[in-house]
Design a protein around this nucleic acid. Sequence first.
DNA 1: GTCTATAAGATGATAGAC
DNA 2: GTCTATCATCTTATAGAC
Lengths: 232, 232
Amino acid sequence: MSQPDPPTPARRGRPRKAGGGGDTSESILDAAEDLFSKHGFYGVTIREVAREAGVDTALVHYYFTAKKGLFDAVFLRRAAIWNNERVDAINRYAQAAGDQMTLEGLFEAFLQPPFQWSLKGGPGWKHYAALVAQTNANPAFGGETMARYFDPAIRRLIELIKQIMPHARDVDLYWAYHNLSGALTLTLGETGRLDRLSNGLCRSGDLETAGAYMVRFAAAGFRAVCAEPDAG
Amino acid sequence: MSQPDPPTPARRGRPRKAGGGGDTSESILDAAEDLFSKHGFYGVTIREVAREAGVDTALVHYYFTAKKGLFDAVFLRRAAIWNNERVDAINRYAQAAGDQMTLEGLFEAFLQPPFQWSLKGGPGWKHYAALVAQTNANPAFGGETMARYFDPAIRRLIELIKQIMPHARDVDLYWAYHNLSGALTLTLGETGRLDRLSNGLCRSGDLETAGAYMVRFAAAGFRAVCAEPDAG
DNA sequence: GTCTATAAGATGATAGAC
DNA sequence: GTCTATCATCTTATAGAC
């Protein structure tokens, strides 16, 4: 099973006064991504971002003008990659599977990029996944970006589901997706609540397992919800 | 189908300098509940809470000492009612259904209290539902309260599921619940994202519909995930 | 591009009068 | 219980030297 390339695993140690190129703004984005994903927009100060990035406060304003601009930049940086890869993954699967497509296969393809990156793409991708989850659950910030970048990938997913279940109604599909979306959101947040609830039986950081369950759970859910009505 | 009593629909117009009893602290809680549910802990200032409640800033400190204390009080106020009612609802259902229990019936009972209150319990309960959703997705605040009050109800739910599916393994049940929990969380947030994604075909405020889909989706998901393994 | 210095205002919290 | 007044701190943001 081909895994998506882990794109540019984020740098760990950050050089103060980095000698080389102009990657200062990247350091700032990395730090902001980390902090925003953990504490939300209001829970983070520009000073904290600057300190974490090892740069001066004024530089944050120099590159991103305002705090809101910084947040938008963080959210935008990986949005296209994230969603293009999801679209490519399900398209590749559709092409390869032909009329043997299954919901399970489709969902696996759809979920693999975020899960694999969150696992192996470096800390940046993990933080970004948590940020996406948070933004999906409360689109106060990033609502516009969310719609522009994320919706098309979801619509393409629904198109392909319709090839598998031609009888399914759009309403049913959207409500079904809503259930999947919630599960995905909660999972990418990796809150640790499941660990405690299950007395350590499940670990919310175990994304491989989480993904496998989610695929089976959602596939069955979609089938139940989109089933042909009793009579006709 | 008996609906849970909508307990104390929160007062709408708030009397400045309320003549009567000492319900100042309730006004403060109502205002804080509203604001915290929309903007999170850091996104709300004590001044905003005081203004919304029509009281002085100092009174917030008088009653709740600190901002964190205010948040905890908000989260605690309805936690016991919320969860006791969920436990009662599924116990009543189990009693009534006997060995005719179904996953669908059980989930419907489990979901009804929050959904009905969010719909008909007054604005306070709707705000509280959104706050619970937010806290479940990011337990930075309320993690302890979450565990103490919410976990027992979930454990009871899982016990009853085991009566329906005696073969099911605990790991499978917890991971399955995690999927349901995510869907529930996203739904109670009523973010409006589904409205836009579906071009208005679905409204995230339509909790009746959301609940009906969730029951069918989750029941099928649990069955798929907890199915007896192929061989043995 | 990067830093120092600082403006201009908001924030959580408290002391004390009534 | 409620309000006025205020503190000490932290906030975003900018102007300007290097």
